[in-house]
């Protein structure tokens, strides 16, 4: 049986890792800090996948970010998806060559199908994760790009429908309103997902405790859950969450 996944998201900018709340960043520490305060071997044994995103608000230092990818993937034998400013095949190649298994594309997802096709032609559709950051207004759901700074004028439901014809393998739905709040996931957004949607959905934004994870994992439309909440799950936090979920009778992947 295919197990649903728990994914940990790391947010990177300018040599440091960050907490995010409604997309406002708060600095936590450097890679050294992360390695010191975070038992990486333990963490890698508690999650199914890692998502590493360069959320730089300023110009990206690509080579520095690539060295972070290399360093993170050195003794980490789980899949790692990398995103941030993928605007060309060349950038995609740099991330893959640094150790990325998958690529996360957000800002160009609905704006540059040619780029997606180019990348898919080399690495395959299964290598691309389309990431959608959204925000609710009174009667409207807006899709935001460039780290939540610009919205694009596209109907949310239609946008989700159009994903079926894009060369991507998976989809991340990330609620900016719930981001970093720990108040739980935005399950209502799943009403917008077409029936029999063929691509796996990674649900993100709002996880605060293990009960939130269980609720999401039990949902038929959700294939994986992601959290970026470093402090909530620091130390053995993720391992504990995993145990609690398994103790509740939910099957997660099993390793030696």
């Amino acid at each position: 049986m295919l197990k649903k996944r728990i994914i940990f998201t790391l947010l990177y900018q300018d040599r440091n890792f960050f907490l995010s709340r409604n997309f406002n960043l708060q600095k936590i520490g450097s890679l050294e800090w992360l390695k010191k305060n975070y038992n990486f071997t333990l963490m890698a044994k508690s999650v199914d996948e890692i998502l590493l995103l360069d959320v730089s608000r300023k110009k990206q230092n690509t080579s520095e970010f690539c060295s972070i990818i290399k360093s993170l993937t050195k003794n980490c034998f789980i899949p790692i998806a990398v995103g941030g400013k993928i605007e060309s095949l060349d950038k995609a190649k740099k991330y893959i060559d640094s150790g990325a298994d998958k690529l996360v594309i957000n800002s160009k997802l609905f704006l540059n199908k040619k780029l997606l096709e180019k990348i898919a032609r080399v690495y395959g559709e299964q290598c691309i994760i389309g990431s959608i950051d959204y925000k609710r207004d009174e009667n409207n759901i807006r899709i935001l790009i460039n780290n939540g700074s610009n919205s694009i004028n596209i109907n949310f439901k239609k946008a989700l429908k159009s994903l079926i014809n894009l060369p991507i393998g998976e989809v991340i739905l990330n609620s900016i309103d719930r981001d970093g709040t720990g108040n739980g996931f935005d399950f209502k957004i799943l009403d917008q997902v077409p029936n029999k949607f063929i691509k796996p959905i990674i649900f993100s934004g709002g996880a605060g405790n293990y009960k939130h994870f269980i609720l999401a994992l039990k949902n038929k439309k959700i294939d994986a859950v992601a959290t970026a909440n470093l402090l909530n799950f620091v130390g053995s936090g993720l391992q504990d969450v995993r145990k609690l979920i398994i103790n509740q009778g939910f099957e997660l992947s099993e390793w030696m």
């Binding site: 295919l2 996944r5 691509k199 294939d223």
Partner: peptide, 11 residues
């Protein structure tokens, strides 16, 4: 009706 790609951990 399982989603495609087949992605994740399976036995």
């Amino acid at each position: 009706n399982n989603k495609i790609p087949h992605v994740g951990f399976n036995n």
